[in-house]
Design a protein around this nucleic acid. Structure first.
Lengths: 250, 250
DNA sequence: CGGAAATTTGAGCAATTTCAACATGGGTGG
DNA sequence: CCACCCATGTTGAAATTGCTCAAATTTCCG
């Protein structure tokens, strides 16, 4: 429980830059950001290292500076289900900020070597009050989460595993800003399966069926074959906008 | 689109009382509540009457004063999936308060004859800034929603329809404050099925299997047969507390 | 190159959906 | 008061889909 000694406090300018550019801080001056970041540090988490565990007290708000972070649950029967996957620039544990019991409800680990900024939660909560725009950003990011989770519920209830996978791949391509004409999967397939609530075998069998949905997957390489021929191949599925839903059923 | 003339503005003291006692307003003085309720009115919605539709602009925040309200999606293939069911004292469209596009993403109708208070959203948003405790309550209610939705995702992925139904019934009994030794279902079974993302037939077939989970259902009558013999039969599953999750897998 | 981890493939099984027929039941008009 | 009707729920049987377990491959790394 708690942090081990193996973490190192890092101060890396590039990583600080990323933190300062997250949507949560949009509209703030650099000075205001300084205040919000007071007491925060960037830590290195090696592959598989635990960041926090279920039932640990919530101490920090986290911002991914580099690498991939997995948030998951372990169910009674040893099944592991991935709640969320975070990448550079993502903020996590925003719900922890306002949870009644101030305990974590999930486990979180680094998938690969990751750098994570940790902001002490109490100080951050104090500061929030001073900056109204942060409150607004927090509200809308929570609403985004709700909309996405609802979409997930509906997809599980109404779509086949192949359709769910197809949607996920388009979303990944978009949110990472990858080239839809060909890119490499940023996650292991087993992680994707866990994220989508299906078995690895099911995912594996879904892959060949993706061709019918305009997606070709070979190993870790993905290519969308149904892209508009127009000059703009910017097929942006912006996170959880109303268009996300529309496109999910397109 | 918009409200038809058939709605009547009502002012009913008992209903006003309910509104004033919702958790969202906890900790406010009566005068402060007066200010927040300015411009709001209680409207009557007959059975099946639409309250708002997907893609309508968000104009109000809603509080159920009486009756039952269903929030749902219609998928491409004509499938209807219920996002949420609201009862007296529930607030809905809180996500609409902060959605980027300020459009509704769902449809909402009265299940039975319902009375709903509507608070103009702009005025409410202005007022929010003045009352810090409202902000805090709003945050925690959004977090609750996220936790519940995540639980839903996990249940769909890991539990059988019988288990899901069993959990739902205990939750209903609890949140309505009904007698676990015997109560009447507050919803039609088809609504429950839609809420749980299963077919009516599946629900129907799950009912006999509930006996193995300590629940007896005959028609619309429900009885829990595994209640603790202690004097306290208050089996409270408080909404979305950490215990809700624990109990879901008990 | 060897071994462990990750993925794919196969076969059988279990759960849910689908389609269709049948029961129930409450309310209405005669 | 009763017959009838429409909405609701139940039941049956076949078809799908995803899961489980097991074995065969492939990939990744040291």
């Amino acid at each position: 429980m708690g942090e081990s000694m193996s973490q190192r406090l890092l101060i890396n300018m590039a990583q600080m830059d990323i933190v300062r550019r997250i949507p949560l801080f949009a509209g703030l001056t650099e000075e205001e950001k300084d205040i919000l970041l007071q007491g925060g540090g960037i830590y290195s988490y090696p592959r598989k290292k635990c960041i926090f565990r279920e039932d640990d007290p919530v101490k920090y708000l986290y911002i991914v500076c580099a690498g991939i972070v997995q948030e998951f649950h372990e169910t009674h029967d040893g099944h592991e289900i991935t709640v969320n996957i975070y990448k550079m620039g993502d903020v996590f544990c925003t719900t922890g900020l306002f949870s009644k019991d101030s305990l974590h409800h999930t486990n979180t680990i680094a998938v690969d070597n990751a750098y994570v900024m940790e902001l002490p939660i109490e100080k951050f909560k104090e500061n929030i009050r001073k900056y109204e725009s942060i409150t607004a950003h927090l509200f809308s990011s929570l609403v985004q989460l709700i909309v996405m989770k609802q979409l997930e519920v509906e997809q599980q209830a109404t779509m086949s595993s192949t359709q769910i996978l197809a949607f996920f791949l388009r979303q990944v391509c978009d949110s990472y800003g990858l080239d839809p004409h060909g890119f490499t999967l940023p996650y292991k397939k087993s992680l994707i399966a866990s994220r989508l609530g299906m078995e690895l075998e099911t995912l594996s069998r879904a892959i060949p069926k993706l061709k019918a949905h305009g997606i070709e997957v070979k190993g870790v390489h993905v290519r969308f074959t149904d892209l508009p021929v127009s000059a703009e191949n910017v097929v942006r599925l912006f996170p959880a906008s109303i268009n996300t839903r529309k496109r999910a059923y397109a």
